[in-house]
């Protein structure tokens, strides 16, 4: 019974932790929009803008990735079951 509760709570927790994906989604969309604006203004700097944007996006993705890692820990390497 306790185990079932822990598993259910872990699954819910994993789902909730993926809410962290909202932040990077908004942030990366904003960055991509700005990059599109920049390319529109200066098409000759397209290569630089793209690489800078990808780098920034990948760094901004960290928070979302943390959420993903927490979700994966809860789903596939649950540390809470051992505490029962």
């Amino acid at each position: 019974m306790e185990r079932a509760i822990v598993l259910a709570a872990s699954a819910i927790g994993a789902g909730l932790s993926m809410i962290a994906g909202i932040g990077p989604g908004i942030g990366q969309g904003y960055a991509a929009g700005k990059a599109a604006e920049a390319v529109g203004r200066q098409p000759e700097a397209k290569g630089d803008i793209t690489s800078t944007m990808l780098f920034g996006c990948a760094v901004a993705e960290s928070t979302g990735i943390y959420g993903l890692v927490v979700a994966m820990i809860l789903l596939f390497a649950n540390p809470l079951i051992g505490k029962l």
Binding site: V59, E61, S62, I65, Y66, L68, V69, M72
Partner: peptide, 16 residues
């Protein structure tokens, strides 16, 4: 820590 989880998370997400 952030470097580890960024790289690991991206690749592991692909694996999953």
């Amino acid at each position: 820590v952030s470097m580890t989880f960024r790289h690991f998370g991206n690749i592991a997400a692909g694996v999953v």
